[in-house]
Design a protein around this nucleic acid. Structure first.
Lengths: 121, 121, 121, 121
DNA sequence: GTGGTCTAGACCACG
DNA sequence: GTGGTCTAGACCACC
């Protein structure tokens, strides 16, 4: 569990959990069929509520990144590299649509976006 | 008042108001010393509560984009083009720091970000 | 009329008027029996509402600093230097009671107040 | 909650709340990471509206004196004694600039201010 | 007329 | 349970 949680962030904790674990899965850091720790253990480790962990796991399952075997645990779905790349890009693109709409509202051209992004990155 | 409000959006209404108006000011669409509509009128027009409008206006004032004269109304602060560009870029950069941290968590290089961004923009 | 008005200040304009004129009177800058400008003229000069000027003049009269002769104008009350000093100190002391209660709430001793005041003055 | 509220004061209630609590924090009366009472409870105790409390809390947060964890509560920011002294003096100095401008308008020297202040304190 | 403040009461997301 | 948001409606000071 290599997770960093910020209690003060505006992002809900379950969302932080979901984002970080899905990123790890899609980067290939968590192998296929890897068994996630039981939610109670994860909750203890991360010092968050069980409900919070459960919500994050559900979100992962809804995105097809893990599957639950009742009584056994939660396992990382087996995905081909292509599928992983596909899913990764889908998730990023979805976020980018929101991000760019913000930039556009300020009248930025894509060149200006690149310029500023380079500074920040 | 050229404002679009989404009641279903996850973003609070006052935040939407703030973002859109600040964008309009920093794009130069609202001239210096322009008098914003009275909060009660704005609230009626936009079909939101007075308090929601007030909260947005307060945020604008806190960012130095407008100033309030009690009993008279709220006016757009006079800013030089340089100041406006500065403030605009500050606001965007602030958002970009959040955006890029998300991209980075997926292990994307800046080139990959540009690639995907170009598709979306 | 040597008056500076701030529209953005939190202090109401009539209060600003009252404070500045009473200060001028009690500093002896406005001679006894000096005739203040008619409220309409003052309002035009200062670019404020007649009502605002009237309110300030009323406040001055209530404090015994001017007196009104209907149809003739408003005149500075004749005061001995002692009376002036007395009134001046009364006004300042009244304000100081409020000011010091704020300092005290932070647990400041009078020595610390002096220290900080010296920096600011 | 050792707070005294004056409904007759010219100062808005949320401002009174803010001033008294910030003073308590900066005097070290409220320990770091101390959890403020829930806004609803505070509102009931103090017999004011929830919104009034919330506004005061927001002001405290904006000044970096507390931080909010949604769903958990509001906590006093951990500050070093130096930071606390710094912030305390900043707040007082800010007020003193206003206070002294009033004294100055009467032509008072700093010695005269000290003299009168000593009487009042 | 304007904004400033306060109230009571509701619904939601998060933990 | 917590805070976050939104609503409708009221009263006040100022201009």
């Amino acid at each position: 569990m290599n997770i960093a949680i910020s209690n003060t962030s505006e992002k809900p904790i379950y969302q932080q959990l979901f984002e970080q674990i899905s990123a790890q899965i899609l980067k290939g850091e968590l192998e296929s069929a890897y068994c996630l720790p039981p939610i109670r253990q994860a909750a203890t480790e991360l010092r968050v509520s069980i409900i919070t962990v459960k919500k994050a796991w559900e979100e992962l399952e809804r995105h097809g990144l893990i599957y639950t075997v009742t009584g056994k645990g939660c396992f990382v779905t087996e995905l081909s590299s292509d599928d992983m790349l596909q899913k990764r890009n889908d998730m990023i693109r979805m976020q980018m649509i929101i991000d760019t709409s913000y930039y556009k509202s300020f009248g930025l051209t894509i060149e200006e976006v690149f310029e500023l992004l380079k500074e920040v990155y």
